[in-house]
Design a protein around this nucleic acid. Structure first.
Lengths: 162, 162
DNA sequence: GGTCTTTACTTGAAACTTCAAGTAAATCGC
DNA sequence: GCGATTTACTTGAAGTTTCAAGTAAAGACC
């Protein structure tokens, strides 16, 4: 192992910068590659999409349903997009929408039985693809990465509020 | 630290599965959060977008220009999308297109001087955002993550060809 | 209890992306 | 060299996403 050469502050800074950029580039590349595969699989095999799957996944974990706002936060997408996605899912009979009893501005979205079945089928294939995709790492490496990403995520969340 | 409990093969498998899924979920979340921030910044401050920036970034590293196909591979997007993006960038005067001298099917895209200036301005802000976003990790952690992602990326590439 | 602000969501236009099908040039096999 | 295949890109339609502006209900403040 080589000793790091002494660097003046400016050079060190540039080096750090490039490092962060390279990290981001790689993160972006890996995510996009997996994303595209998953999306294509969901489209071809189920006539669905990653965005729809994501909405269904949120709802699958919420037996009492979720409001549009919660879906929008959970999927990291805009309100308008969630409105559009849920409308499409409703047209397909996968979810229902009803006005919240305690707040007439709010809409509660719920999975239908058919929606749950549909999701379960997709989730199986989805999981297989993900497991396959990350099989290049050992279990320990996956855990390490999970932990590091946890730090990044928390940092991003904190940053957002300030 | 606890000792891991003994697990039968099936249970162990399920555990691994959930681990990979959780890793993917977190990876996706972090990437999307950064992506959205960068995209919003580029839109608000420069009337551009992450996709356009990505094309310009590829071209900035290629003084002799790039073919549409290379751009498409580099940006991990479809041919049709690159055609669209490049047409928009050309209309804005940021790039030029010309038929490749050695292959009349191919188009070579090159950054104009104005395009390079525009990109340089955006790159500055972009880098600042990225550095800020990953400041939650130490330099060592960033390196670790970079290495792990390298493994993932290579695994994904190898998988694709098979 | 009436205005003022905030919140929850929807809408429409424009931007972007994908997919499938198409065009034209290069290359392969003979 | 000539037809068959492949490659490089474009096109058009449909799908998706975003943004800004809008509507309606809830809550805040007197």
């Amino acid at each position: 192992m080589m000793t790091a050469p002494a660097l003046d502050p400016e050079t060190r800074l540039q080096r750090d910068d490039h490092e962060a950029l390279r990290l981001w580039l790689r993160l972006f590349t890996c995510t996009t590659m997996v994303e595209r595969r998953v999306d294509q699989m969901l489209k071809r095999a189920f006539g669905s999409s990653l965005a729809r799957f994501d909405v269904l996944a949120q709802l699958d974990r919420a037996p009492d349903g979720l409001r549009m706002g919660a879906l929008s936060e959970g999927t990291l997408t805009t309100n308008g997009n969630v409105t559009w996605l849920v409308a499409a899912l409703e047209a397909d009979g996968h979810v229902t929408r009803r006005t919240a009893p305690d707040d007439r501005r709010a809409t509660v979205v719920r999975l239908t039985a058919a929606g749950r079945r549909h999701f379960t089928l997709m989730a199986r294939e989805h999981e297989a693809l993900i497991i396959h995709g990350f099989a290049g790492l050992t279990a320990l490496e996956r855990r390490t990465m999970h932990t590091l990403l946890g730090t990044v995520k928390q940092h991003l969340r904190l940053e957002r509020t300030s």
